[in-house]
Measured scan of single mutants.
Amino acid sequence: MAEAPPRRLGLGPPPGDAPRAELVALTAVQSEQGEAGGGGSPRRLGLLGSPLPPGAPLPGPGSGSGSACGQRSSAAHKRYRRLQNWVYNVLERPRGWAFVYHVFIFLLVFSCLVLSVLSTIQEHQELANECLLILEFVMIVVFGLEYIVRVWSAGCCCRYRGWQGRFRFARKPFCVIDFIVFVASVAVIAAGTQGNIFATSALRSMRFLQILRMVRMDRRGGTWKLLGSVVYAHSKELITAWYIGFLVLIFASFLVYLAEKDANSDFSSYADSLWWGTITLTTIGYGDKTPHTWLGRVLAAGFALLGISFFALPAGILGSGFALKVQEQHRQKHFEKRRMPAANLIQAAWRLYSTDMSRAYLTATWYYYDSILPSFRELALLFEHVQRARNGGLRPLEVRRAPVPDGAPSRYPPVATCHRPGSTSFCPGESSRMGIKDRIRMGSSQRRTGPSKQHLAPPTMPTSPSSEQVGEATSPTKVQKSWSFNDRTRFRASLRLKPRTSAEDAPSEEVA
């Protein structure tokens, strides 16, 4: 009796068929016929556990003709996506030579605008209408194809895939403007070719909807975003200037109206006075309405000098805001240009540092100066060695804690006790272990408590650290204090090793 083939788990290929790579489910599931010992083939499952149809090819690079078809379809799909992405970037994010197409579109729109203006002049109306009709045909074809291509290429973005995504893309403001202008152009052409009475009025009214094509030149909205950011950044200043200017306008108009309503027919109503105030304070000055009385002229002159300053403030605020924003954008561009080279330089330096163990090129690091100058660790070890030599091999803490019996001779020589300023008595072995921070803190506390006492003391002649007598400086308080830590004499004296002298005989010792 033939044995059933062993159940295979995992992703390994079956024996005897090495080139074939078959994806098997996580659990080997066989058909009921196979479990019962029949000759049925096992049921194939996909990666998600769903059964595959009987005629479906197995996924994998070596699955025969199905694999070749899959490779061809995958390559075609990649080319399709690449083309779609390229078209989308050309239309929505132009760079380099892609601006040539947008310059061509701008020339078409500008020519249409010029011809629309010439069509309103009686001398050039006939020729402009003929040229404009031909140009409209060209623009309908160009913009119609462009609109379709834009909607198709938007599928390269995830949020615009599918018919719902394309509809979302078509609802964008600039796409809506394109659609309105396209419909208006078709209506103008249809009305112009019919030759009816309505054609002339339709051409004159709907052609100027094509002015909206100038708005579509900035599809990404960079200028509007820049203007919005400047207004938002200086909103408080703008609101303040406009508010005060509006108050000056209504008060000036009302007072001039009261002064001129009886003697001047131009100011017969408050609305006429508001019109005069707006034209005057905005420095336009049509001259259609002028005050005639001396009181009205004085009020107009005073409020004009006051109001023009507030009406001119928004222009200066926006101008300075634009300058600052442009400078910030230039700085951001320079930062973006330098970020990648800086990151590459840091990575290269780290690779060199991690692979080169000698690091002989590091001549400006802490390790280099640590090898030249005595390190703080060596100074600490030197302090501890000196203290243990004086205390008979014991550390200062051990000397303080060691009990001394009554009447027993002390094995240590008597030492002079010292007192730290602002604290109780402490171990004499710690007097010379006072660090730089303690010395600086002690000097600052003395300056806070009594700076007036220092200038009363007789001035001391500054001497070099080499000429100081070591026996005289029994305490860190003898170090000359200065008002600034930048004094080199104080810094050098604080680094010197001060020996400890006994109370009975204080021989001067120098520590090399």
Rank of each mutant, 00 (worst) to 15 (best):
E3A: 10
S119Y: 11
Q347P: 01
W97G: 07
L23R: 08
T283I: 00
C131R: 03
I250S: 02
D262E: 08
S153T: 02
A191V: 12
I346N: 01
L83M: 14
G34C: 13
A21P: 14
S41C: 05
F208V: 11
A170P: 00
L238P: 01
L281F: 04
G66D: 12
S205T: 14
I284T: 00
T282R: 00
F322Y: 00
L212P: 03
A187T: 05
P5L: 12
R20P: 06
L113P: 08
L145M: 05
Y88N: 14
D288E: 00
A190V: 12
V142L: 14
F104S: 01
E32A: 06
H77N: 12
G316S: 01
P61S: 12
G46R: 08
Y88S: 02
S119F: 11
L58V: 12
P54L: 12
H77L: 11
E32K: 06
A233E: 03
S31R: 04
F110V: 05
K236M: 02
I284V: 07
W152C: 00
Y286D: 00
A36T: 08
V114L: 15
S265P: 12
P291T: 00
G321C: 00
G307R: 00
P14L: 13
T240N: 03
T278A: 03
P59S: 08
K289E: 01
N196I: 02
Q33E: 13
G55C: 15
A300T: 08
F179L: 09
A190P: 02
I148F: 13
F110C: 07
F169Y: 09
R79P: 10
R44L: 12
L306M: 10
D288V: 00
H77Y: 06
I121N: 08
F104I: 07
W224S: 01
C69S: 11
W242G: 15
V149L: 15
T223S: 12
L305F: 11
G46C: 04
M139L: 15
L299P: 00
F99Y: 11
F198C: 01
I244L: 07
F169C: 01
I134L: 11
G296V: 01
M340T: 11
C175G: 15
G12V: 13
P53R: 15
G12A: 03
W97R: 14
R204H: 03
E22Q: 03
K333N: 02
V298D: 00
V114E: 11
V215M: 14
L295R: 03
A68D: 12
Y88H: 07
R331P: 02
L227V: 15
V114M: 03
N344T: 08
A76T: 12
T282I: 00
H334P: 01
K78N: 14
P61T: 10
L52M: 14
H124D: 04
P51R: 11
L9P: 04
I346T: 00
G195R: 04
V183A: 07
Y160S: 00
D218N: 03
P61L: 11
G296S: 00
I308N: 03
L26V: 08
S205I: 05
A128T: 10
G55R: 12
A128P: 09
G49D: 04
L318P: 01
H124N: 03
F198L: 05
R338P: 00
A28S: 05
V186G: 02
V181M: 09
V87I: 11
A76S: 07
V149I: 05
R216L: 14
H330P: 01
S185A: 08
G60E: 05
W97C: 15
L9H: 04
V138G: 12
N264K: 01
A68V: 05
L209V: 08
F251I: 11
G96S: 13
R43C: 04
R79G: 14
A184S: 08
F137Y: 05
I284S: 01
L247V: 15
S41T: 08
P6T: 09
Q30K: 11
Y101S: 01
Y270H: 01
F137C: 10
S31G: 15
L115V: 11
T193S: 04
G245E: 05
P53T: 09
T120A: 05
R204G: 09
Y232S: 04
V114A: 15
A252T: 04
F246S: 02
T193P: 04
R338G: 00
C158W: 15
C112R: 03
Y232F: 05
A25T: 03
H124R: 06
P54R: 12
L212M: 11
I180V: 08
P42R: 04
A342E: 01
T27K: 09
G222R: 04
G285V: 00
Q164R: 07
T283N: 00
S119P: 07
W163L: 09
L115R: 10
A342S: 02
I177T: 03
K333T: 01
L127I: 06
V109L: 05
V87L: 08
W86S: 06
E328V: 02
N196H: 04
Q125H: 05
K325E: 15
I250T: 01
A301V: 15
F311S: 00
A233P: 01
H77R: 06
R339T: 08
Y243N: 02
E130Q: 12
V151A: 03
Q122P: 10
Q327E: 13
L23Q: 13
L247Q: 01
Q30E: 07
I197L: 06
L58H: 08
A259G: 01
L133I: 07
L91Q: 02
P341T: 08
D17G: 14
Q84L: 02
V142F: 13
G16E: 07
L345H: 02
V326A: 01
V188G: 09
L306Q: 02
F104V: 14
V117E: 02
S153A: 13
G307A: 00
R20H: 07
W163C: 06
G316V: 01
A28V: 09
I279F: 00
F254L: 03
V103D: 00
R93P: 01
P173T: 04
S268P: 05
D218E: 15
H124P: 12
E336V: 00
W97S: 14
A76V: 13
R7H: 06
G46V: 13
H234R: 00
T280A: 00
L48M: 06
G321V: 00
P5S: 04
F143I: 09
A75T: 14
G228R: 05
F303Y: 02
R220P: 02
A154V: 14
C112G: 08
I346M: 14
F167C: 10
H234L: 00
D262G: 06
S185L: 09
S63P: 08
A2V: 09
I140L: 07
R8C: 08
V230M: 00
G165V: 00
L83Q: 03
R207G: 01
R72C: 15
Q332H: 02
G37A: 11
I211N: 03
N344D: 05
D218Y: 04
I244M: 04
W276C: 00
N89H: 11
Y257F: 05
V176F: 01
A271P: 02
C158R: 15
V181L: 13
S320P: 02
R168G: 06
P6R: 05
H292P: 00
M139I: 08
F246C: 02
Q30L: 06
E146K: 01
T290K: 02
C131Y: 11
C157F: 15
F267L: 01
R338Q: 02
A98T: 05
K78M: 07
L118P: 02
A21E: 03
K172N: 15
I148M: 06
K78R: 11
I211V: 10
L255R: 00
I279N: 00
L324M: 12
V326L: 08
H334D: 01
D218V: 03
V142A: 03
L258M: 10
E237D: 01
R82P: 11
A312P: 12
L345F: 06
A184T: 05
K289T: 09
S119A: 09
Q33L: 09
R166C: 11
R204P: 07
F106Y: 08
D178V: 02
D262A: 00
V231I: 13
F110Y: 08
R216H: 08
E237Q: 01
R79C: 06
R220S: 11
A21T: 04
H77D: 14
A75V: 11
V149A: 15
W275C: 00
I244N: 02
L203M: 05
A300D: 00
I180S: 06
F182Y: 07
L135V: 05
E237V: 00
V256D: 00
E328Q: 07
S253C: 10
Q122E: 08
G144D: 03
M206V: 04
R297M: 03
G39S: 11
S229P: 00
M217R: 01
G155V: 00
V24A: 07
A170T: 11
I180T: 13
F322V: 02
K172R: 05
P13S: 07
S269Y: 01
M340I: 09
L274I: 03
L107S: 01
G55S: 14
Y160D: 01
G302A: 10
L145V: 10
T223A: 15
P19R: 07
L133F: 04
P59H: 09
Y286N: 01
A190T: 09
V248E: 01
L108M: 08
E92G: 00
R161G: 15
A28P: 11
L58I: 15
V215L: 10
N129T: 09
L295M: 05
F167S: 04
V109D: 00
P291Q: 01
Y232N: 07
A263T: 13
A252S: 03
